[in-house]
């Protein structure tokens, strides 16, 4: 895999007033990859995504989207360049209909025919949204709102999508379903993904590469399978204690061979 870097972050630092939330993060997401960033509450994952997508300005460092520096740009320019951020906690437009929410995802575009085709594409991945097209988005269930947020993001025709904790507040079954769709979007629609998660098990399952964040820094970076097998990740993020390790390893392998 010698694909080019869609996203390249170098020595990024971000602050909330005097509080430094991102302390020199560097990472890379290559064409077609599904990269995950793991970390506990408050590790700085959301802040990292906000800084990358232009919602926050960094204090230092660079963000390169397909080779062009974009740090400090406004999100409308960044979205138009092909990067979209699906925020944490869904953040839909509650009083607009599902169809209007989807349409707003394409705000920066004007290619009518392609937009219509993409609407069909989104509805083919999330048929439930098509059924609920005329319903106010605020009346959707949590899982459906997450689907809407992802579908709306797709409407920007992104080369790379930043996903912030899509599993938040969802049942294990629905999490499984949504992650399956994320994986399919990655392989079928060629959307490069950067996925932030606390749910390390599912995230490492779909991802090809992973970073682990602690207190605003990247502390580990490796192939997803390698991370999943590492003692630290198992203990702190997968909730497998050391004496259970043997069994845990086996269980992991077992799950892997199911696929």
């Amino acid at each position: 895999m010698s694909a080019t870097a869609v996203l390249r972050v170098d020595n990024l630092e971000s602050y909330y007033g005097p509080i430094q939330a991102i302390r020199g993060v560097s990472l890379e997401v290559r064409e077609g990859q599904l990269v995950t960033v793991l970390g506990a509450n408050g590790a700085g994952k959301t802040t990292l995504l906000k800084t990358i997508s232009g919602v926050m300005d960094p204090e230092k460092g660079t963000v390169k989207l397909e080779g062009t520096e974009i740090q400090g740009n406004e999100p409308d320019r960044i979205v138009a360049r092909g990067m979209v951020h699906v925020p944490e906690g869904r953040e839909i437009f509650p009083l607009l209909t599902v169809a209007e929410n989807i349409a707003m995802g394409a705000y920066t575009r004007s290619d009518k025919a392609a937009i219509n085709a993409d609407e069909e594409m989104v509805y083919s991945y999330f048929p439930i949204l098509k059924e609920r097209m005329t319903q106010a988005a605020g009346t959707l269930s949590g899982g459906q709102q997450q689907m809407l947020a992802i579908g709306r993001g797709l409407m920007a025709k992104p080369h790379i999508m930043l996903l912030d904790e899509p599993s938040l507040g969802l049942s294990p079954l629905l999490t499984e379903e949504i992650f399956d769709i994320i994986r399919r979007l990655n392989t079928e629609q060629h959307v490069t993904m950067m996925l932030v998660e606390q749910n390390a098990a599912v995230a490492l399952d779909v991802a090809t590469y992973g970073y682990v964040m602690e207190l605003g820094r990247i502390v580990m970076a490796d192939e997803a399978a390698t991370l999943a097998a590492s003692k630290d990740v198992q203990e702190f993020y997968l909730g497998i204690s050391q004496d259970e390790n043997q069994r845990g390893q086996r269980r992991w392998k077992q799950r892997k061979t199911w696929r």
Binding site: S53, P87, E91, I92, F93, L96, A103, R152, A156
Partner: peptide, 17 residues
Amino acid sequence: VAMQAASQNQLAAYYMG
């Protein structure tokens, strides 16, 4: 519609460009 969207959820509107 964008005016409505921005008034219902400013942050989300910002995220969508």
